[in-house]
Design a protein around this nucleic acid. Structure first.
Lengths: 199, 199
DNA sequence: GTCTATAGTACGATAGAC
DNA sequence: GTCTATCGTACTATAGAC
């Protein structure tokens, strides 16, 4: 139960959590309203009373997830100031979320949102991803990171982490996400870092 | 026109190329048979004469793309022997393909294949991706790369490259893919490389 | 092997009682 | 606000002529 928003009724939350599970498991188009009825225990009528149509469910789900993620990222930024600490703890949060709420990560990373939310910007343009890049920008401005194209630096920094998460979600990792955290964050960071450390 | 397989009839090739375009543009479930008829100029009857059902189209499309990619990767492996050269030219090929056939890259990287091909293994387990990892394994066995978890090393090596491709496909890069090649391959490789280069 | 016409089905969405 | 019953539609897949 990732979605717990006080602004939303119990019914809406139940629908959204079922939608998250089913959309990840079967995909948006393979999930019918009857499927949602069975999984959530909410009737067709109530679903359509809570949401205009099926697309509105996906839309609200997406907005809820993004705003919740944004909120948790802001907490991390508030607790850490250096670019390295921010990078490390943002990655830590992603690993923890992938471990505890794999559906959330799958939905955010993997879903072809354009397919059912035609007006949505590509996920790379969403706030949580611009926040990730902003931390790299900060590191560069403060001299922690080499001067290089920001997109390249961001791709290197988070590419490895996100790729590992993908491999884990696909069941190709033996150990829990957590055990890779130090190794991969240090490796990725060192490759774009300004310090001339030999190891 | 990426799909050009002599073992397939002209009609089948036309259907597959239309399917590739439409599946990427609108998604598998948003692409109806009538859409395919319009786009390919092949009638409903002929489509169902060529393929058992809609899923078989996706299946054959996937198989064609993967076998064609496998073939081109093998060519690269045959032309280069060192792990670095193989890594570099495999990345070069990915960038070139993303530039010339963005639909192919989108379909391979982005499509939620499990959604419409339930029996398919996750894409990370497909041959082209195991080939990528094998090159990292080779580098480690020959002492070019540090001893570390193979999945971590592979994630770092290709994560940055694939992430950059994703950013480009989403329209967030200013310059053509090609111009990032040297920078990102060197950065990713150096972070897992065994040589103690300070820069 | 290619076409048009259509059967059959399952879905999204609504109506209307409680 | 929640439910059941149902309408209308659009799709996949087939039938059958050429």
């Amino acid at each position: 139960m990732f979605i717990q928003n006080n602004e939303l009724s119990q019914t809406k939350q139940a629908i959204l959590n079922s939608a998250l599970n089913l959309f990840v498991e079967k995909g948006y188009f393979n999930t019918s309203i009857p499927d949602l009825v069975k999984h959530s225990g909410v009737s067709t009528g109530s679903i359509y009373h809570s949401f205009k149509d099926k697309e509105a469910i996906a839309n609200t789900l997406m907005e809820s997830l993004l705003s919740q993620i944004e909120c948790e990222q802001n907490q991390i930024l508030a607790n850490h100031t250096s670019s390295w600490a921010r990078f490390y703890h943002l990655c830590e949060w992603m690993f923890q979320t992938a471990e505890t709420y794999p559906d959330v990560m799958q939905f955010i990373l993997n879903a072809r949102h354009k397919e059912f939310l035609p007006d949505l910007l590509p996920i790379c343009s969403a706030k949580p991803f611009t926040t990730l890049r902003a931390v790299i920008q900060q590191g560069m401005e403060q001299g922690d990171l080499k001067e290089m194209d920001i997109m390249v630096a961001a791709a290197v920094a988070y590419g490895g982490v996100l790729r590992l998460i993908q491999l884990g979600l696909d069941g190709l990792l033996d150990a829990p996400f957590n055990s890779y955290l130090d190794s991969i964050t240090k490796t990725c960071w060192s490759s774009i870092s300004n310090t001339n450390q030999t190891q």
